[in-house]
C-alpha cells in the first residue's frame, strides 16, 4: 500500500511567480508501507524541503503530495497527516517543549485530544520502545544528545504514526548516540513503521532498503543502496561519497586483492578477506 505519493512536485520558497527559484523542480515517487528509504544529496539539493513536504509542513507550489491518502493541500485533513507522519529534526535542543521527559512525550497526544488514561499507556510504551523508561521523570535538558533524540522519537511515537521522517537526526550526535538512534529506527521499521531517513552518512544509507538521491532539486536516483554505490556516474553527479567500507574495498581491488565489487557491509568484507588469507 502506498503511503507517500509525490507527483510532479515543484517547490519555491518565494510565492511570487516572477522571482520563483525552485528548490524542487518536478519530483515524483511513491513510498510503500514498511519501507526504509534514505534520502541523500549535497547541501542545498532540496532534501530538507522534500522532508517538510512529506508531512505537510510545506505545500507544493505545483504538483501533489498525498500522505496515507490525504492531500497535503487540504487544510481540513492536515492533522490526519501530521498524526500519521512524524518528524525528528537535526538539533535535539530545538524540539523539546517540556522540561520533564514524560510531559514532552505527552505533548503530541494531548494536542490530539487523546484521553489521559490512553496517553499514560502511550507514553510508557513509547519510552519502552526507545529504551528510555528509566528517564521518564528526568529533566529533558540534562540528557545526552542521543537520549534527547530518542525522546524526540518517543514524542512522535506517542502519536502512533505510520511514517517516521528523520531530517539529519543523527548529524549532531556522538558515535554512540548515532548508533542508539539508528537502532531504534531499525526496530520501528521492523514493526512495520515506514522510515524516511534524510542523511549525509553513507553508513546509514547502507542500512536501508532503498535510497533516493537528489541533485539540484531533481531526483537523480531511485534504487537500492547496492545499485547506488555501483553507479559511479550518479555518485559524481550528486556529489555523493562511498561508505568507508566501499572505499576500502576499492583500495583492496586496486592493489590486486580480489574481493567482490559490491560489498558494502564491514562483516561481509572481513569474511572475504578472511577467506583469502586463511
Amino acid at each position: 500500500m502506498s503511503q507517500e505519493e509525490v507527483k510532479n512536485v515543484k517547490f519555491s520558497y518565494s510565492k511570487k511567480e516572477e522571482n520563483a527559484v525552485y528548490a524542487l523542480k518536478g519530483i515524483s515517487f511513491v513510498i510503500e508501507k514498511g519501507e526504509f528509504v534514505s534520502v541523500v544529496g549535497r547541501n542545498g539539493c532540496g532534501k530538507s524541503t522534500l522532508a517538510k513536504l512529506l508531512n505537510g509542513l510545506f505545500e507544493p507550489s505545483s504538483g501533489k503530495v498525498t500522505v496515507c491518502g490525504y492531500d497535503t493541500k487540504n487544510e481540513d485533513t492536515i492533522f490526519e497527516i501530521r498524526k500519521r507522519a512524524g518528524m525528528v529534526f537535526q538539533n535535539p535542543d530545538n524540539q523539546m517543549v517540556a522540561t520533564i521527559v514524560e510531559d514532552d512525550i505527552a505533548f503530541g497526544p494531548e494536542n490530539l485530544g487523546v484521553p489521559p488514561e490512553e496517553i499514560e499507556i502511550r507514553v510508557a510504551s513509547a519510552l519502552d520502545t526507545v529504551g528510555m523508561s528509566e528517564y521518564r521523570h528526568a529533566t529533558a535538558s540534562k540528557l545526552s544528545g542521543g537520549q534527547k533524540q530518542r525522546i524526540a522519537i518517543a514524542g512522535v511515537l506517542s502519536m502512533e504514526p505510520e511514517i517516521l521522517i528523520f531530517d539529519e537526526a543523527t548529524s549532531m550526535l556522538d558515535p554512540k548516540g548515532r548508533g542508539e538512534v539508528m537502532s531504534v529506527a531499525k526496530k520501528l521499521n521492523a514493526q512495520g513503521i515506514t522510515v524516511i531517513n534524510i542523511t549525509h552518512n553513507m553508513d546509514e544509507v547502507v542500512m536501508g532498503d532503498r535510497v533516493l538521491a537528489l541533485n539540484d532539486g531533481q531526483l537523480v536516483f531511485d534504487g537500492t543502496p547496492k545499485e547506488l554505490f555501483k553507479d559511479v556516474e550518479i555518485l559524481k553527479r550528486a556529489k555523493l561519497d562511498l561508505p568507508p567500507v566501499a572505499k576500502f574495498r576499492n583500495m583492496l581491488i586496486e592493489r590486486g586483492i580480489k574481493v567482490s565489487e559490491d560489498i558494502l557491509q564491514s562483516n561481509e568484507l572481513v569474511e572475504e578477506i578472511w577467506q583469502l588469507l586463511k
Partner: peptide, 9 residues
C-alpha cells in the same frame, strides 16, 4: 559535522 561528503572533503 552536517556537511555533505564533498563539503567534508
Amino acid at each position: 559535522a552536517g556537511l555533505d561528503p564533498e563539503g567534508r572533503d
